[in-house]
Design a protein around this nucleic acid. Sequence first.
DNA 1: TTCATAATGTGATCTACATCACTTTTTATT
DNA 2: AATAAAAAGTGATGTAGATCACATTATGAA
Lengths: 187, 187
Amino acid sequence: MNSGLREHIEKIIPLTDVEFEHVLSHFILKKFKKHQFLIQEGEPVTFDFFVVSGLVKSSHTDEAGKQHIMQFAMEDWWISDYQAYFSQTAATLMVDCIEDTEVFCLSLENRERLCADLHKIEHFFRKKSNSGYIALQQRILSLLNSSAKERYVKLLGQYPSLFQRVPKTLLASYLGVSRETLSRLSS
Amino acid sequence: MNSGLREHIEKIIPLTDVEFEHVLSHFILKKFKKHQFLIQEGEPVTFDFFVVSGLVKSSHTDEAGKQHIMQFAMEDWWISDYQAYFSQTAATLMVDCIEDTEVFCLSLENRERLCADLHKIEHFFRKKSNSGYIALQQRILSLLNSSAKERYVKLLGQYPSLFQRVPKTLLASYLGVSRETLSRLSS
DNA sequence: TTCATAATGTGATCTACATCACTTTTTATT
DNA sequence: AATAAAAAGTGATGTAGATCACATTATGAA
């Protein structure tokens, strides 16, 4: 089966067939329909998810009931409520499907076991985490120094495909701007 | 010498004396005075820094000349321009001292060598990176859903010592709010 | 095809915060 | 102790973007 996972890992470290089989045996494949939840607020977070196909988002709903999007994840992206996942506490984010989606699920236990067994894999996850950290720093800087319009244009440049697949309302809540303002910006 | 580094690492993984000596041999100790630069924009980024004593900040200056603070780092914190450090490109952030500061410096080469030699250390850095990632997610959420006042109060609660050591002007630029507004909020 | 629901657009109004200009206070420096 | 420089406070005014209210256009389900 060509899931994209092997290619994804091998962008960072080469794997033998045996190694990849070993890695893969630690994942569970699951399918979800549009609007289904992978993680619900308040629930335990059992998995980190690698998106094989489809599109999901993670978001937080504040006291005022407003939804803020932490992350989108399409093919070859990882997503979870990492805070809750790593500390094995209840989710404060929800993760749900924008499209029908297939994911590889990795429990914390299996992740840690893989990392302990295979130094290479620990290396892989360290690299991934480093890149993620850098991406979040960029996002923080753009929240600090760019106007809504600038952030919008930047996102459009970086991920044009999002604009075909994600309703503007959700993009607005990712960018930290109201639906109405985003609508006026893009026209 | 009690630098705090060993205790810091041992919060995550135990080390033998020999192992710690090995680790330590990959670091260089440097001292800087208030206002000195550890990293200058446009220059190559040679090190990741572990702060032994003192206080530094990393910041980005935008086209309009406005400074935005990415991070503060006091005792036991790590700081660098990670984007530039990991990809060995020119700095887009500057790192400079708010107080006289002592740091342990780790080159990328030494970091990767340590990680390759000692699986434990790769584990350590993976864990650190994961925590950093989570912290940045929190900050993004608070930029998305909280008012300047709320962010201010939250920061005050989390790091009260910053308020004794850092001028309000800098806190403002960390929080993404103008000096004047912060002044009005805190009164 | 019809009806319902979600997504988008658009005007009118409001507000949190920025910016500018100036004063006062605090901190360094000789 | 005197002077300069940095930090902090504060009023007046401007503005990006929020909010509210409603109209229009897609999308989907029976």
